[in-house]
């Protein structure tokens, strides 16, 4: 996946976890929690969904890397290079 696709992948996951939140306008650099209502439980769900969809393991110590969309893309890029984007069913 490219950086853009990873951002899309994370947005897709956020959409399934927080369907009421408007994710179209999310920017890359502000913390996700400042842009939409996401709590620490939601971050766990994002991590679990990443594992399910892409087989990527994010250790607890690295959760902080996922704070922004840019952070997600940077952190996940090496893990997801060989994966295809999975679209929401």
């Amino acid at each position: 996946m490219t950086h853009e696709e990873i951002v899309q992948a994370v947005k897709d996951i956020i959409h399934t976890i927080a369907p009421d939140e408007e994710i179209g306008g999310l920017n890359l650099t502000d913390p996700l929690r400042d842009q939409i209502e996401l709590d620490s439980m939601d971050f766990l769900d994002i991590v679990m969904e990443l594992r399910k969809r892409y087989g990527v393991q994010v250790p607890e110590d690295d959760y902080k890397e996922l704070a922004t969309l840019q952070g997600c893309a940077d952190y996940l890029a090496p893990h997801l290079a060989d994966h295809e984007l999975v679209t929401n069913a």
Binding site: M41, L44, D45, M48, R51, G55, Q57
Partner: peptide, 17 residues
């Protein structure tokens, strides 16, 4: 219920590894 979800995440990680 939330603790159940937290634990499920840990268990899922363990099974995957």
């Amino acid at each position: 219920a939330n603790y159940g979800a937290i634990t499920a995440n840990k268990v899922d990680a363990r099974i995957a590894s």
